[in-house]
């Protein structure tokens, strides 16, 4: 009888009396019962909050920037080099803030990228298990230090230290802030680059050893190039973090927006400007109040572009292995 093909489902469905259970048994909606559905929708609604957050950020920045750009034309915003919203003669040239941000970011990258990558290589390729067990929590603690504490450190430790080497260095300067921002992002570079190095299959290094390579040759000429994409992603994410860093530059870099490449000068970054305005009691509706949204919009777009780019690289290289 098993040679005969099974009866068509319609016939079988009508055979309600056959078998030890009634036919509607299987149709009781349990998996998708109202309760289960309600839970699913409730959880899904929570997941939507993150999307709404992004939309909220974009909406707030755009809506509040519109009146700003109605009184300050884009030609001035991007054409002017002075940023003086608090003076009677107001100028809104974003370059003054952008250059401050750029200066601090470059200095921090000079500190963090080599040191972070070196740490990643050491931890991933050289450190023994127990050394790693000490170093990694150490770096995690470094990453857990609040930025305001780094700001204190920059102002009361690094700047006086630098003043002994750099004569005439003022209390507020881009150099000290940049170095400390760099220190702050070292753990980020180190941990993301280490992930990238770990993702490289160790068969590659073994192949290099089989060809007679020494350890450093295998690491520097095989593993690091193989992890290049992930390391670049870590650099971009860390630089984006440096661009968005606020408290260190607010405390240590000064409040003088100017277009300069001299690291010993006091400057102002976009983030520090936002804090400076919101710290004072700026009334809603004034052009200063609106200006923080315009600056915030620029800041958001720059960091978002870098994050999207870095995350795309990361996903690509994750697929590779």
């Amino acid at each position: 009888m098993s040679t005969t093909p099974s009866p068509p489902p319609t016939t079988a469905d009508n055979e309600t009396t056959r078998g030890p259970r009634p036919a509607d048994d299987l149709r009781q909606q349990v998996y998708d019962s109202p309760k289960e559905k309600a839970i699913e929708y409730a959880l899904g609604a929570c997941a939507l909050v993150s999307v709404l957050t992004t939309l909220g950020i974009a909406a707030v920045l755009l809506i509040e920037s519109i009146p700003f750009f109605q009184s300050v034309p884009l030609s001035e915003f991007f054409g002017e080099t002075r940023w003086t919203p608090q003076f009677t003669e107001k100028h809104f040239g974003i370059w003054a803030l952008l250059s401050g941000t750029l200066l601090v970011t470059v200095i921090s990258a000079v500190v963090a990228l080599p040191v972070g990558l070196a740490s990643a290589i050491f931890i991933s390729e050289y450190a023994s298990t127990w050394v790693r067990k000490i170093l990694k929590p150490g770096l995690e603690l470094l990453a857990g230090v609040p930025t305001v504490v780094y700001g204190y450190f920059a102002l009361s430790f690094v700047t006086p230290l630098l003043q002994t080497f750099v004569p005439g260095l003022g209390v507020y300067n881009a150099l000290s802030a940049g170095i400390v921002v760099g220190i702050m992002i070292i753990p980020m570079v180190a941990s993301l680059s280490e992930d990238a190095l770990q993702a490289v299959p160790n068969t590659l290094a073994r192949a290099a050893y089989a060809l007679g390579a020494t350890k450093y040759e295998a690491v520097v000429r095989v593993n690091v190039p193989a992890a290049f994409g992930g390391i670049m992603a870590s650099f971009i994410l860390a630089v984006s973090r440096a661009i968005g860093e606020t408290m260190i530059v607010t405390l240590a870099a000064g409040a003088s927006p100017k277009t300069t490449a001299d690291p010993t000068e006091a400057i102002q970054t976009m983030t520090a400007f936002i804090v400076q305005v919101s710290k004072g009691d700026t009334p809603q509706g004034t052009i200063e109040y609106q200006s923080i949204f315009a600056v915030g919009l620029v800041l958001f777009l720059i960091t978002l572009a870098m994050n999207v780019f870095a995350n795309r690289i990361t996903r690509r290289y994750q697929e590779k292995y």
Partner: peptide, 24 residues
């Protein structure tokens, strides 16, 4: 979309969240 959005949100500067909080 949600996953990419969350990854990118994690990289938004905290001061921008401050702006959102101020306005919202």
């Amino acid at each position: 979309l949600i996953q990419v959005n969350i990854a990118n949100l994690a990289g938004v500067p905290s001061v921008v969240y401050g702006i959102l909080g101020l306005a919202l």
